[in-house]
Design a protein around this nucleic acid. Sequence first.
DNA 1: GGTGAAACTTCTAATAA
DNA 2: TTATTAGAAGTTTCACC
Lengths: 159, 159
Amino acid sequence: MNKVKLDEIDHQILDMLIDNTRTPFTDIAKKLLISAGTVHVRVKKMEESGIIKGSSLTLDYVKLGYSFIAYVGIFLEKTHQTKFVLERLSQIPYVTVAHITTGKFNIFCKIRAKDTTHAKNIIFKIDDIEGISRTETMISLEESINDKRRLMHTIFNEL
Amino acid sequence: MNKVKLDEIDHQILDMLIDNTRTPFTDIAKKLLISAGTVHVRVKKMEESGIIKGSSLTLDYVKLGYSFIAYVGIFLEKTHQTKFVLERLSQIPYVTVAHITTGKFNIFCKIRAKDTTHAKNIIFKIDDIEGISRTETMISLEESINDKRRLMHTIFNEL
DNA sequence: GGTGAAACTTCTAATAA
DNA sequence: TTATTAGAAGTTTCACC
């Protein structure tokens, strides 16, 4: 859970890998004027320390037939049911993100669906979970920003 | 924007790469009983067709000193200012996601910050954008689910 | 810590089926 | 479309700074 110290070299390695996880270590080495072996060792260390948790593809959900996004705010009957409800939510694969929140809602989640009909079924399934008193849905008309890279570049340039 | 047809082999390739983008094609080939060349050709095609948009590292934000997540609902003075406001939001790197939504809010965004003080500054910056009449913040106490892989596995097993 | 080179593995593109 | 293959390229290890 604690912070980890990374130096400028580490930041630059991450900065390149963030945009393409398959960037050859030899390319990174060339750009940073270090050896490929060093890149390898540093990446390995960042994996071991947990800074790098893994890698994943960015796929085009729309092309896969999943163009519907909605956020669902959940009101619980009693807050101590949070764990149980989250357990149930996690069994619905279309719920891709969920947070316990302060403010308006007790739990806040994001769903991905094929279309409105599909989404309706998912939301009904959520509504049916015991312990949930009410939900409020916000349908995404357009995902205008989705860019963790900008944040990462900012973080890496901070030091 | 249109859907793309993928067969079972493509799905299985994606399914393996989703969990680790550096999985050697030779490993994938062995598991699927095809040649590494075939894997290579298919991945390339999926990249060209746009199904695979890219790859990215999953980093531990907490270890990087960014443990604060909040969702901010935005009410606009007039809806036609949406574009302008989004433009401004996209200049704040700590705003990692933003959607135009129906329902309670006009725009809905997610922010990542170091701590509450940092978050406060970001939210003030959002509040200051011209055209925004009011915002409502939901602070994440815990990110309980964050798993697009479960969804992908489901999609791949659908056919 | 880092390097450079050797040994090993993987990628890639051309050819053939 | 897929398989094979061989040369190019990348990764990983290790003795030595």
